[in-house]
Design a protein around this nucleic acid. Structure first.
Length: 492
RNA sequence: GCACCGGUGGCGAAGUGGCUAACGCGCUGGUCUGCAAAAUCAGUAUUCGCGGGUUCAAUUCCCGCCCGGUGCUCCA
């Protein structure tokens, strides 16, 4: 049992291993908390979550660090515009980010580290780089990394520095750099900007620096795996490697995991295209958190995912099939014992599920055996061939599936309720879909009452009234099933 | 321009040098039901963008072309 993953650095599939033979040490680039997270962000975090959960499934222990970038140009700009300290500004979006992770059933890393709480670690790294001759200070007090000091630059993204044009873009505040490609480690204070008094002078950290400093603080100079979105490969991760390895002369991370960008309706998501969605946007349109999760994880991480509302609907329906199955199985009256066929079917599904995940996290392939098992057991249930021991085994396999996919257990009410509360509190009710409001407009007690009335109508064979009630409930997203065991209902 | 990725049924999406090309959603029909729903069964790609080539055999390998997308700049 071992997970094989594509490694950007080696360019091939490598087995994921813990160098210390015990705990896998991994670092994943987290969000810059200047706004609410969008589904593109979450596809990456979700795929890292799949990785996390798969590794745990195979018995690995984890020490996973994720940074929160709580100081950067956009944050300073927005906080200044809002007239509040950046700490206050970022606290709000950090909180929102953590809530969104919870909504999507994304496990929190063992360690969440904020950039602004690691300034000393960062300046110390700059000092070490300066000692090694890889960093220099310019006249305005900024510090830069000297690319020429790191010949291996480009080894991750397979870029050839020679072929890159020098000086194509130079920021106004970077005119003093030795080479246009040298990148900022530490930015000198500008008037009115947040800054820290430090041994290397006043200023604030460049973006890349925090990840090197924090990764090494919590994971050591060399660790097992580093994850992030594909866009970070260059230059961010390349810069992290340069900053770290110039000091340690050890491989920074052995395995690099990059998640492909998603598209929305076939285009890159952007605010100007009008195809930009935050998690809240989707919840308020009436989609459930689990469907968003499933839609974003069902396409393997190395492939481009085209996000559509049809895809969300499909995911919703697929989840319903699984949830209905689990309920049916749990509620069935079964005799004790096991059958060879169903035990074998469960074992096969379990083995294929795990094997697919171990094969570079092939989530699309991993789903298939689970649905196969559902069909097999449903069919057996129809003909009364399932025994209690078969049920236990099937539920065990479903639980294993959900330990990674986390969509069958229904945790959808809270995220939707929270999104609605947010919309109300922030005066954004126009974002709420009418269907969602309709669904919220009926209480469980009212539903039960209508169902009781419908049952009476049915007893009297007054099907007209019975169907009216069913339609009325359907309009409010309540689905009814008349089963042998009585009437069942569920909200959409 | 340079680099990279993809083009599989109505849609999404696996996969493999040679078993009936997974799985999900949808649709059509049967069973069940007062009717539905759920479930199940059957059908839904004689075929994997197009044209060549290699091979006993290619959707799978190679070449060319067409189409779509992405990166090369802040970005998950």
């Amino acid at each position: 049992m071992s997970v094989r993953l594509f490694n950007t650095l080696s360019g091939q599939q490598d087995e994921v291993t813990a160098a210390d033979g015990d705990v896998l040490r991994m670092y994943a680039c987290g969000p810059t908390v200047y706004d609410f997270g969008h589904i593109g962000n979450f596809r990456t975090f979700l795929q890292v979550d799949i990785l996390r959960r798969t590794l745990k499934l195979t018995g690995m222990k984890l020490r996973h660090v994720m940074n929160i970038t709580d100081v950067d140009d956009k944050i300073i700009r927005n906080a200044t515009a809002a007239g509040i300290p950046i700490g206050e500004y970022t606290a709000k979006y950090t909180q929102a980010f953590l809530e969104d992770l919870a909504s999507l059933q994304i496990e929190e890393p063992e360690i969440l580290s904020r950039a602004t709480e690691h300034i000393p670690e960062m300046t110390a790294l700059v000092e070490k780089l300066a000692e090694a001759g890889a960093a220099y200070k310019t006249e305005d007090g900024s510090w830069y990394f000297r690319l020429a000091a790191f010949p291996e630059y480009g080894k991750l993204s397979k870029k050839d520095l020679e072929g890159m044009t020098d000086g194509a873009r130079v920021d106004v505040d970077e005119y003093e750099k030795d080479s246009a490609r040298d990148f900022a480690l530490w930015k000198a204070t500008k008037p009115g900007e947040t800054s820290w008094e430090t041994p290397i002078g006043p200023g604030r950290p460049g973006w890349h620096l925090e990840c090197s400093a924090m990764a090494m603080k919590y994971l050591g100079e060399s660790f097992d795996l580093h994850a992030g979105g594909e866009d970070l490969m260059f230059p961010h991760h390349e810069n992290e490697i340069a900053q770290s390895e110039s000091v340690t002369h050890k491989p920074f991370a052995r395995h690099w995991f990059h998640v492909r960008f998603l598209l929305v309706d076939g285009r890159k998501m952007s605010k100007s295209e009008g195809n930009f969605f935050t998690l809240r946007d989707l919840l308020l349109k009436g989609y459930r958190a689990s469907a968003i999760r499933l839609a974003l994880i069902s396409v393997p991480y190395r492939h481009q995912l085209n996000f559509t509302f049809d895809g969300l609907t499909e995911a919703t329906n697929a989840i319903d099939r699984l949830r209905t199955f689990v309920e049916r199985l749990k509620g069935a009256t079964l005799a004790a014992g096991t059958t060879d066929e169903l035990q074998a079917a469960a074992a096969k599904a379990e083995a294929e599920f795990v094997a697919a995940l171990e094969n570079d996290l092939n989530t699309a392939e991993a789903r298939a055996p689970i649905f196969d098992l559902v069909r097999t057991v449903n069919a057996a249930l129809d003909t009364g061939k399932v025994l209690a021991g078969d049920r236990e085994r099937a539920l065990e396999v479903l639980a294993k599936f959900d330990a990674v996919f986390a969509v069958v257990a229904d945790n959808d009410a809270a995220p939707t309720a929270a999104a609605l509360a947010w919309a109300e509190a922030s005066g954004r009710m126009e974002l709420v879909a009418p269907e969602l409001l309709a669904r919220q407009s009926i209480t469980d007690a009212e539903i039960e009452g209508l169902i009781a009335e419908r049952n009476n109508a049915r007893k009297q064979r007054n099907f007209k009234r019975s169907d009216e009630i069913r339609d009325e409930l359907a309009a409010k997203g309540v689905m009814i099933e008349d089963s042998r065991e009585g009437v069942k209902w569920k909200r959409k």
